[in-house]
Write a protein that binds this DNA or RNA. Sequence first.
DNA 1: ATTAAATTTAAGATTTATTTTAATGAATGC
DNA 2: GCATTCATTAAAATAAATCTTAAATTTAAT
Lengths: 107, 107
Amino acid sequence: MNLRRDVFQAIADPTRRAILLLVASQALTAGAIAANFDTARPTVSKHLQILTECELLEQKQNGREIYYHINAQKMKDVADFIEPFRQMWDDRFNKLEAIMKNYQSKK
Amino acid sequence: MNLRRDVFQAIADPTRRAILLLVASQALTAGAIAANFDTARPTVSKHLQILTECELLEQKQNGREIYYHINAQKMKDVADFIEPFRQMWDDRFNKLEAIMKNYQSKK
DNA sequence: ATTAAATTTAAGATTTATTTTAATGAATGC
DNA sequence: GCATTCATTAAAATAAATCTTAAATTTAAT
């Protein structure tokens, strides 16, 4: 069995995306995270493992609890991929870019 | 069999990401796209179908050829998802946001 | 009309992912 | 120590995704 385990594979699953949004604002224990879903705990545990393996989450053990907190930095892999496309749709972004360029040339 | 077929599922596959980047700059026929990969043509055809179903690509028939062109707009689904995370890592983006706010209040 | 070219559709095999129940491990509290 | 709590790992079933060969479809060219 040849597993993928990259960021794109990780965010392909809707439950995992929900976990990421949940943990974005504050680190949570596995139990607290699992409480938000209907699936069995080992299922959530597996999702957490996948998210940790691709470095979107980081574990921090505290006694018998394990807190999961986000590593937003890693999301840059996705941002980098969509970047070339962004310029094809996001006017606001392009405007910001133009202003930024102007700003930098003046300072 | 309950297939997913959303943008996140679509970009989870490395071949499909390569196809998107390839077609980003110019529309290409199925054959021209397939020429870039080692896999059999029906395989590429299937990937194109998946990308079309989730609206990342659009088909335009021209005689017996089918041109595939990008619908960058749809990539916004992904952009929207990573947005909350972006603010946790992208200093440049935050700076641009600040400047933009300032710019708007002056005009 | 035939043949050739560009692509897709079908069918089926293989590989990967996901989920569940049951079992295991490790820290806490009485 | 012993039971309880928080969480993971193992094993196995189910579901989904991917890839290939062969057949079909549609348009173009001779």
